[in-house]
């Protein structure tokens, strides 16, 4: 951070905060070393429950992958390793970092981590389910939109559940029902591409959900600021 004379822009503050979160995560390894293996176990367990029928698994594999990304991704956004204590929050307030910037920083870090989660779980799903990957380039924008939307939703839920004993159980309940447009969009993009239908409407749905979530977060951030 710089001095008041050259006060950093909110964007710079946001990037710095995201960097701080990512450095803390790199030390703790909570998201990538704990949650990702847990998600991989989830991908491994489902075929044991629904039957190890290869054509069936090939059909349902992409959908299961996105369900696992959604449910386990919420846990990543609510990770305890980067929870700011009261003293850290006070310091950020004294430094002039606004609540909106803090929320955006958290959302940015979440997005980067969720892209990592998707990248690590993707090969696991491909190996276990052998899905039809025709139209795979469409996955790149879909992955980005899922990570962005879930990152913002997770940051918002984290702010709502901040300091609560049951934040890691309450957070998923708040996020999961609101993340349905992302799940629908992500699963239908690949299906549309596979059957030579246009995938743009599904990307547009996800983008709209992302923008609405970001708008809600921007409007709510100031109201979530709590005096102690």
């Amino acid at each position: 951070m710089t001095t008041l004379a050259g006060a950093p822009t909110p964007l710079r503050q946001c990037v710095e905060l995201a960097g701080k979160d990512l450095r803390a995560e790199a030390r703790a390894g909570e998201a990538l070393l704990v949650t990702v293996p847990f998600g991989a176990i989830g991908l491994l367990l489902v075929p044991l429950a629904v039957g190890t029928d290869t054509p069936l698994l090939r059909e349902i594999g992409p959908g299961l992958y996105w369900v696992v990304v959604l449910l386990f991704g919420v846990l990543v956004t609510l990770r305890a390793s980067t929870v700011d204590g009261p003293a850290q929050l006070d310091l950020l307030r004294l430094c002039g970092v606004g609540p909106g910037t803090r929320l955006a920083g958290r959302a940015l870090a979440n997005t980067v981590l969720l892209l990592g989660v998707q990248a690590l779980l993707g090969p696991v799903a491909v190996v276990l389910y052998d899905p039809d990957l025709s139209g795979w380039p469409w996955l790149a924008p879909a992955a980005l939109l899922v990570a962005g939307g879930l990152g913002v939703l997770g940051a918002l839920a984290d702010a709502l559940a901040q300091g609560l004993a049951g934040r890691t159980t309450l957070g998923p309940l708040l996020v999961a029902p609101l993340a349905v447009p992302l799940l629908l969009g992500a699963t239908q993009v690949l299906t549309a591409a596979r059957y030579d239908r246009t995938a743009w409407p599904w990307l547009a749905l996800m983008l709209t959900a992302d923008l609405l979530t970001a708008l809600a977060a921007a409007l709510c951030a100031a109201h979530l600021e709590e005096a102690r």
Binding site: R167, L170, L173, L174, A176, H223, L224
Partner: peptide, 27 residues
């Protein structure tokens, strides 16, 4: 139904009345 169940769960999780009112109003 589940979104508002989440709202009620959030209410029950927060003890401080002002914090509860603020966060639940946002949600």
């Amino acid at each position: 139904f589940f979104v508002y169940l989440g709202y009620l769960a959030l209410r029950r999780a927060i003890v401080d009345p002002v914090a509860r009112a603020r966060r639940c109003a946002v949600f």
